[in-house]
């Protein structure tokens, strides 16, 4: 049982690390600010959660695991608020998202 948890935690840590690097690549590759926001979303949600979950499994039951759970909770509350604030501020600042096709503009829908 302990070995399964150990192996699972390594899987979580490595997957989390991979997602983090993916988000970093995405933030460099994507063409405009609003698409980069999505790439940053990957690192803010699943990457952070997986790495912290992996650490929780290594720590076992106790105060340390509870603190890690608190960090996950904080990040999952603050992440979307920060992303929303960024998008709103960019719109407010006059930045227009690059759209795939002209009819994707909301004036129509």
């Amino acid at each position: 049982m302990a070995m399964i948890v150990d192996a699972l935690s390594w899987v979580f840590l490595l997957t989390g690390g991979f997602l983090g690097v993916s988000g970093g690549i995405g933030i460099l590759r994507f063409p405009d600010f609003f698409t980069r926001l999505h790439a940053a979303g990957v690192t803010d949600t699943l990457c952070a959660a997986l790495i912290l979950l992996g650490l929780m499994m290594q720590a076992g039951w106790g105060l340390v695991a509870v603190k890690l759970a608190f960090i996950i909770l904080f990040l999952s509350f603050t992440g979307p608020v920060a992303a929303h604030a960024l998008a709103r501020a960019a719109l407010h600042g006059g930045l227009m998202p690059l759209l795939h096709r002209a009819e994707d503009d909301p004036s129509k829908s």
Binding site: A39, G41, A87
Partner: peptide, 15 residues
Amino acid sequence: YANSITLTPGTVAMR
């Protein structure tokens, strides 16, 4: 609702 939209990567509530 808006926070859940933003929390799932790929969609961001802008306004």
